[in-house]
Write a protein that binds this DNA or RNA. Structure first.
Lengths: 229, 229
DNA sequence: AAAAGGTATTTTGAATACACTGTACAAAAA
DNA sequence: TTTTTGTACAGTGTATTCAAAATACCTTTT
């Protein structure tokens, strides 16, 4: 486990700061799947008492990021290929729903935002900074989610996306796929401009399925490496 | 607030017992939307200390059943018509996905279970016991969820269904709709037997949309009553 | 050397204690 | 009468303490 440090948003209760800190640490891989989350240890490391740590862990538990076994404590949940398939199966239909709703509801301002997001994505696509690319990609999709006007849907999609966050950066390193990402984003914008639900949903579907392919390949690779140790 | 009592599953940690207890109390309406959840009060009422209460509230918070405001505490979240529409918008596509997967994957044993569930549903449909009817209805749909083989999807659907749990019993009191419920369930079984995805998804779609209609009507009625007080 | 058992240590579970904040109510000033 | 300010109280936020369970380690026995 890397050294952790509190995200110090001074106004929030400590438990929320701890929650965000741990969450990010898990999603970025600073704390690895299978690793134990020990309360005293974390409390010392973050300079707080066990209470906020415990409350943060309760939330992580419900989010599925950690697995609790009573009287033994929490470990970081590990994602199997099966899990990933299940998540993506769900994600595809929700992304299609989001695209459909966005096609119906998107307004000029949101359209502009989307184009800006595309531009920023293109600007970083050839840089050697997977983190930045990933974050611009997310920003693009966030614009679409926003346009749906359905906050529940946004929540769910963010949560589902989060589940594969750990593998996100890895698959972006696969240079060959980057330009097809841009292509697909352009197609999405075109569909949204024409309010063409059929083609919009079709594009997003292949977009996600492509992603699935690559992520699962990476997962297998990683597993092979890890397994051979 | 009605008198609460712990669901005393002796083996689970107290925090989980408290969590389940509070959750059920919220979903059944024993604790009403807008009501404050005061830690000391709940602790006294349930005969435990504040610690497990707080940890339970953290989980309820993440589930969206309570809303926290820092230094003021938690209140039970109230569901607006808008919220309900958003939930149903999502639920429709997930129910359709579930039906599609079930059509593809359901096996003989599961099919038998489904028919049993239908039979039990029919057995109670004319009784004057909305709770029982509701639970048999749930059992039927659970069979379908089970057949999808996608645990993530099951989780999500259970959670979405839960969000309208409070209005469930009310709308079942509407006698006229009961028999169309049975009709629709029969149609679903037929579709599953023929593995006819198109008709299966179409039936479930109208099933949910009908439900939406009735629930929203009830919501308006309830609001009118509540508003006039 | 391997297995079994017992003790010490670590860690979680729950309760309690203390600190801080917001709110309500009352008293004083305008 | 209205506004302001101060004080008491109620409730949350965090830390600490105590209890019980799990784990690790060491000893003993076969």
């Amino acid at each position: 486990m890397k050294d952790l440090q509190l995200n110090s948003n001074a106004m929030l209760p400590l438990r929320d700061v701890v929650f965000q800190t741990l969450r990010e640490a898990i999603l970025t891989g600073d704390i690895e799947p299978g690793e134990r989350l020990m309360e005293i240890h974390l409390a010392n490391q973050l300079g707080v008492s066990r209470t906020p740590i415990r409350e943060a862990i309760r939330k992580l538990e419900l989010e599925g990021l950690v697995v609790m076994t009573p009287r033994k404590g929490a470990i970081v949940a590990s994602i199997t290929e099966e899990d990933l398939k299940e998540v993506l199966e769900v994600r595809v239909v929700l992304e299609m729903l989001a695209m459909e709703l966005a096609c119906k509801k998107i307004n000029g301002e949101q359209m502009d935002g989307l184009k800006r997001a595309l531009k920023e994505f293109q600007d970083v696509i050839d840089l050697d900074d997977p983190n930045k690319i990933a974050s611009k990609d997310e920003a693009f999709h966030d614009c679409i989610y926003q346009a749906t006007g359905n906050s529940k849907l946004m929540n769910l999609l963010n949560n589902l996306r989060e589940q594969m966050y750990r593998y996100r950066v890895e698959y972006i390193k696969d240079i060959s796929s980057r330009h097809s990402l841009v292509e697909e984003h352009i197609l999405m914008i075109e569909a949204l401009e024409k309010r063409d639900i059929a083609s919009g949903t079709s594009v997003i579907k292949t977009h996600i399925l492509n992603q699935q392919e690559r992520i699962i390949q990476n997962l297998r690779k990683e597993k092979a490496i890890h397994g051979s140790k």
